[in-house]
Design a protein around this nucleic acid. Structure first.
Lengths: 219, 219
DNA sequence: TCCCAAAATGAGTGATTACTCACTTCGATA
DNA sequence: TATCGAAGTGAGTAATCACTCATTTTGGGA
């Protein structure tokens, strides 16, 4: 783990709780080990050892191992959609962006830093969601649903403006999200060691989406 | 587990080994439990119990738990690229497909059934690849690399034909794969319970790719 | 300096883990 | 039908698991 900016970021979320020095070390160690071996294959004894802490200290602050997982992975979900909540999307639509293209560019730029800084935690989230129904519901109900609703309004706004193709918004969202998530997944997970000309790749991705969904033709 | 066509499919690969009845039950149980709880959280005792077999029987056929995992997940990789190996891609290009579009359609159609029948095993593969270097290398070296090479030749073929945009083949592949994998992931993993008008969604996806990468303009 | 609640400790708990092995059962062949 | 290697068994093993708790250490206010 060369880079530990994510620690600062996740701790910032939890600052209100005034964490002990050892608590911070526990969280840091847990993130490292969970993302290296997966939640189930990680033992509390190993986390304690890497944190330089007695095993009992972990259970003083977290009743169970799963509570430790959720305390790590929960806060990241809120931050994931924060920029879509804080500024109301309607205002964003009417003032800031003349074109869908600009909206996409701003969104990618906005979330890129966040993803880079929180990569290990996002990896854990992605890995564990299928196996923890509480996590899945937390994500689906409070994150995916809201993200979907807001994105849908953006899409329909630009469809009415005649900028986007006349296609069910579900499909527009799926195709747009696939392209963007595909880029992020390739860059950060599949081929993290490859050389990436990020600016060009992002522009290619945006151009691809706009040509694919532009309102030149109908289906 | 309503549908168990995948059992027939994976056993078909292993037929040469003349598996015992109990061996088949072990494999079936292991696939179910691995895909339900993940490899690490699955115990050999539970697998034995669900297979209706003594725990020792598992270790008569597989030295370790990990060997059982690999015996399940390994063969599926070969089948994943089989259609790209059996018929040489060059012949496919020169005879069967006049347009990139037709190639995409045939590829999606071809792999759809396979993915449907092998979903639990593919889920296990996807989940466990990050944590098992042997698996990762097996996949990267023998599957991803070959798939990439062949796909690259297809893309460059249609670029020379003037059908595809003048863009680095890496980016063309990334954008195409994102769109297709995005559709399959959404249909089978993210929203398996939603109603899908598959024919329309596939046509939308292909049209999206062709408009996005068609040779009308250059970058 | 004393005090005390919160923080931290680490030996100890029973349960569960992957895996072993001496033994029994099975089934094809001679 | 007798034989023999492979298939199957299940009690047993040491190690490790998440978690507990009586006890000690710590740090800030009086």
């Amino acid at each position: 783990m060369k880079d530990q900016e994510w620690l600062a970021e996740i701790l910032q979320v939890k600052d209100e709780e005034k964490l002990t020095d050892k608590q911070k070390k526990i969280i840091a160690a847990a993130i490292e080990i969970f993302s290296e071996k997966g939640y189930s294959a990680s033992s509390t004894s190993e986390i304690a050892k890497r944190a330089g802490v007695a095993e009992g200290t972990i259970f003083r602050h977290y009743k169970t191992k799963k509570e430790l997982l959720i305390s790590i992975v929960g806060p990241i979900m809120a931050k994931l959609i924060a920029p879509f909540i804080i500024r109301d999307v309607d205002k964003v639509l009417k003032k800031d962006f003349d074109h869908f293209e600009d909206f996409l560019r701003a969104m990618i730029e906005n979330r890129r830093e966040f993803i880079k800084n929180n990569l290990p935690v996002l990896k854990i989230l992605l890995q564990e969601i299928p196996f923890h129904p509480e996590l899945k519901e937390l994500f689906m109900e409070h994150i995916a649903k809201k993200l979907y609703e807001r994105f849908k309004r953006v899409v329909e706004h630009f469809q009415k403006k005649g900028e986007l193709i006349d296609m069910p918004s579900n499909s527009v969202i799926r195709l747009t999200a696939s392209s963007i998530v595909g880029y992020l997944l390739a860059k950060y997970i599949l081929l993290p060691d490859a050389r990436w000309d990020d600016e060009k790749e992002i522009e290619r991705t945006i151009a691809f989406i706009m040509h694919g969904l532009g309102a030149k033709q109908s289906f």
